[in-house]
């Protein structure tokens, strides 16, 4: 039998190449993606009690969107609320129950009270005209 390996592959021009499996160094060089804000999905907002927090950083690892931040020179936990979608995983993994889930309705700037679709001035600016 004639054996042949027909070419079914796609040629990817060098300038379009991406790293193996899309793996990139951390923190991601892409940074934030202001066209893909997920903060508006949030129903519960994570709120940290820094007194209780023992800085084990489990929440940093658990967050699916890399929105748990090290703030205050790396000494405290904070959240990037433009992207935190309120999934609650950080609360779930915290060994000392330092992260509360507070309904967005309880905040004056809660998601349902935002009058703009986008939360950030720099994002709104993208759509200014």
């Amino acid at each position: 039998m004639k054996t042949r390996f027909k070419k079914y592959t796609v040629e990817i021009p060098e300038e379009m190449a991406i790293p193996f499996a899309g793996i990139v160094e951390s923190p991601k060089p892409n940074g934030e993606q202001p066209m893909m804000l997920t903060g508006g999905w949030r129903i519960y907002r994570p709120v940290i009690d820094s007194e209780k927090c023992v800085m084990c950083k489990s929440c940093v690892l658990a967050c699916p969107d890399a929105t748990v931040l090290l703030v205050d020179g790396g000494n405290k936990i904070g959240f990037n609320l433009d992207y935190c979608k309120g999934c609650g995983l950080c609360t779930w993994v915290c060994p000392v129950n330092a992260i509360d889930r507070v309904p967005e309705l309880d905040f004056e700037d809660g998601v349902p009270f935002q009058d703009a679709l986008f939360l950030l001035p720099h994002v709104e600016a993208l759509y200014a005209d």
């Binding site: 796609v10 990817i12 190449a17 499996a21 899309g22 160094e25 951390s26 892409n30």
Partner: peptide, 23 residues
């Protein structure tokens, strides 16, 4: 040596990522 697994791509890279898996 922290790395970002689970691709978070730029716009315009989606089809490239698919093509690499096809290849």
């Amino acid at each position: 040596n922290p790395l970002g697994h689970g691709p978070q791509i730029f716009p315009g890279q989606g089809h490239v990522l698919e093509a690499t898996r096809v290849n």
